[in-house]
Amino acid sequence: MIKVKDMPNTWKIKYPKRKIYLMRDHNWAFSAWEISRLNGEILPGARLLHVDFHDDYWDPEETIEINTEQDAILAGKKLNIAEFIKAAESTGTIKDVYMIGDYSMATQKKVVHSYSYYQFENEHRLNFFQPENQSFILDLDLDFFNIHAHNSISAYNSNPYLYSDEYIKKHLERFKQYVDCWDIITVCISPEHCGGNEAAQHLLDLFLEVFELTNEPFIKW
Score class of each variant (00 low, 15 high):
84 F>T: 00
86 K>H: 09
87 A>H: 00
88 A>E: 01
90 S>C: 10
90 S>N: 09
92 G>Y: 14
93 T>C: 13
94 I>Y: 00
94 I>W: 00
95 K>P: 01
95 K>C: 04
96 D>H: 10
96 D>A: 07
98 Y>E: 15
98 Y>I: 15
98 Y>S: 15
99 M>E: 09
99 M>W: 05
99 M>G: 04
100 I>N: 02
100 I>V: 11
100 I>K: 04
102 D>V: 02
103 Y>A: 03
103 Y>I: 15
105 M>L: 11
105 M>C: 13
105 M>R: 14
106 A>I: 14
106 A>C: 04
107 T>E: 12
108 Q>L: 07
108 Q>G: 03
109 K>Y: 09
109 K>W: 05
109 K>Q: 12
109 K>M: 03
111 V>C: 10
114 S>T: 04
114 S>A: 08
114 S>Q: 08
114 S>R: 11
117 Y>L: 10
117 Y>I: 13
117 Y>V: 11
120 F>D: 03
121 E>M: 12
121 E>S: 09
121 E>I: 04
122 N>D: 12
124 H>Y: 13
126 L>W: 00
126 L>T: 10
128 F>N: 06
128 F>K: 09
129 F>Q: 07
129 F>T: 03
131 P>L: 07
131 P>M: 08
132 E>R: 14
132 E>F: 02
133 N>C: 04
134 Q>P: 02
134 Q>T: 13
135 S>M: 12
135 S>D: 10
137 I>Q: 04
138 L>K: 08
139 D>G: 02
140 L>C: 03
141 D>T: 03
141 D>H: 11
141 D>S: 15
141 D>M: 07
145 F>C: 01
145 F>N: 02
148 H>K: 12
148 H>F: 00
150 H>Q: 06
150 H>N: 08
151 N>H: 06
151 N>S: 14
151 N>K: 07
153 I>W: 07
154 S>C: 04
155 A>G: 04
156 Y>C: 15
156 Y>T: 06
157 N>G: 13
158 S>T: 13
159 N>M: 04
159 N>A: 11
159 N>V: 05
159 N>E: 11
160 P>I: 07
161 Y>M: 07
163 Y>F: 02
163 Y>N: 15
164 S>G: 03
165 D>P: 03
165 D>K: 12
166 E>R: 11
166 E>C: 03
168 I>H: 00
168 I>M: 06
169 K>S: 02
170 K>A: 12
170 K>L: 05
170 K>S: 14
170 K>H: 10
171 H>I: 14
172 L>G: 04
173 E>Q: 09
173 E>G: 01
173 E>R: 07
173 E>D: 10
174 R>Q: 09
175 F>L: 07
175 F>D: 02
177 Q>P: 01
177 Q>V: 05
179 V>N: 12
179 V>P: 01
181 C>N: 15
181 C>K: 15
182 W>N: 03
182 W>S: 00
182 W>Y: 13
183 D>W: 01
184 I>L: 13
184 I>C: 09
186 T>S: 14
188 C>D: 00
188 C>F: 10
188 C>V: 13
189 I>A: 04
190 S>Q: 09
191 P>S: 08
191 P>E: 11
192 E>R: 11
192 E>L: 15
192 E>C: 15
193 H>V: 06
196 G>L: 00
196 G>T: 10
